[in-house]
Amino acid sequence: MSDTLFGPDNLPYGLFSTPDRPGHRRLGVRFGDDVLDVGAAAAAFGSAHAEVLRAPSLNPLLAAGRSVWRAVRAEIRAWLTEDAHRGTAAGHLLPLSGVRLHLPFEVADYVDFYASEHHATNVGRIFRPDSDALTPNWKHMPIGYHGRAGTVVVSGTPVVRPRGQRKPPNETAPVFGPTRRLDIEAEVGFVVGTPSEQGSPVGLEGFRDHVFGVTLLNDWSARDIQAWEYVPLGPFLGKSFATSVSPWITPLDALDAARVAPPARDFPLLPYLDDGAAGGEPGGFDLRITVRLNGHVIAEPPFSTMYWTAAQQLAHMTVNGASLRTGDLYASGTVSGPERAQRGCLLELTWGGRDPLELPDGERTFLKDGDEVTLSAWAPGPDGSRIGLGEVTGRVAPSV
């Protein structure tokens, strides 16, 4: 299966059901264009981990910890690749086209960061053209906010255009109605497995012990609602109406070949964020993202340019003693690179609506009803292979 993005070096986890049993959700692992019914396979092979693999959610496996994650991954790889097991495993493979995919885990808390220097600089220049693009704290700590876990939805879920207060520049008072500046943000999400105790920070070295895997994420944004509400406390209703994630969670171990050093830092970091010590593994990931609007490529943001790493984000959001819970999700913030074609949101791509995108189906500054956005990505794998991250798609539905 050397020509697939979902071969034995990947093995992402999801949750699925079949038409004959729509209410029975099962854990699956994607293998090429098939899905392995992991719980049924675990029972057939007599796996010691059959109980967590037969759960109707990924959460029990997430909570089991890194030693179990690695053991289960090794088992599944053996079932799918070793001659002695292939016949049995084949009986539990289902065509991907014949199953329905669901949100793979129960989201506990959701945090969104702002980790791309290119994105933060562009946004600063758009909104504060006469001031410094970056705020004074930006290069000293990862900036983030707490989002709404209950509106994290799986790929394919329609995104209803939100309504709210907005204040057009030519108006003296706010008006109420559907957002006119609906945007996307191409991001990467990290899924927490092992919890931590309240009052006990998780250091940089704890990243692999607590984070299970990676998912593509679209942080939908109503820019006009956001602009009116975010002073002084930050994003709220302009962000909380929907966050779309891929139905597939790629284990961290599948991305070992994609680890890269982050960009050089401009200021000394405080000890809990300082990842420059000798012997530590590279903190960045070489993920190549593609953003499509109605099937047309509009951007290719490189995740390797992110200033703050996922390990630093985890350390920062627990340094005050905040605890981790199984199923916590935290996102990178918009991924953008130095080139125009590498900007991960329409706000940047159109420079606040000033420079519309010219597409085969017409101009776009922000999203129209019926528009469909798809994020896809791949990363370098072992021996020249590629590791695919599951796509995340959402179509804009009219306001209700």
Rank of each mutant, 00 (worst) to 15 (best):
G199L: 15
R180M: 04
G156I: 12
F236P: 00
R181L: 05
R223H: 04
P235E: 01
D209E: 15
G203W: 04
I225R: 00
A186W: 03
W220L: 03
P174S: 11
V231Q: 12
I225M: 02
F190I: 03
L216G: 09
R166Y: 14
A227L: 13
V211G: 11
V191N: 10
E197I: 11
Q226F: 06
R166F: 13
R161C: 13
F241Y: 15
F212P: 11
R163G: 07
R223N: 04
D183Y: 01
E229Q: 13
R208N: 14
V188Y: 08
K239F: 05
Q198W: 09
A222Q: 01
R180P: 00
P174D: 08
L182M: 12
E171T: 09
V202G: 09
P168R: 06
V192W: 08
G203M: 10
D209S: 14
W220I: 02
T243A: 13
G177Y: 00
D183W: 01
L217K: 03
N170G: 02
F190E: 07
I184M: 11
P178E: 03
K167C: 08
V160L: 06
D183I: 00
S200V: 15
A186F: 07
E185Y: 06
P169S: 06
G193N: 12
T157K: 02
V202N: 09
V202A: 13
V202H: 08
T243M: 07
G177V: 03
Y230F: 09
L216W: 05
D183M: 05
V188N: 07
S196I: 12
F241C: 03
K167I: 04
S221V: 04
E229W: 03
G189A: 15
A173I: 04
K239L: 06
L233W: 14
R181V: 00
G234K: 06
R208E: 15
G189Q: 09
L216S: 08
V160G: 03
A227E: 10
E171F: 11
V175Y: 02
L217Q: 05
S196C: 12
F236A: 15
V175F: 02
G206E: 11
F207G: 09
V175W: 02
V175S: 07
F190G: 04
G164F: 01
S240D: 15
R180C: 01
R180S: 06
N170K: 06
N170F: 12
G164I: 01
V214I: 14
P174Y: 05
V175G: 07
T243Q: 12
A173V: 10
S221L: 08
E229Y: 04
V159S: 11
G213N: 10
T157N: 05
E187R: 10
E171W: 05
P201S: 14
D219E: 13
S240N: 15
R223W: 00
H210T: 13
G164K: 01
L204F: 15
A242W: 01
Q165P: 04
G156N: 12
I225G: 00
Q165M: 12
T157G: 06
S200F: 14
L233F: 14
F176W: 07
G193Q: 13
L182G: 06
D224H: 05
G156E: 12
D183K: 00
T172Y: 05
L237H: 14
W228G: 00
A186R: 02
H210N: 11
R208M: 09
P195W: 12
V160K: 08
L216M: 11
T215P: 00
N218W: 07
P195S: 11
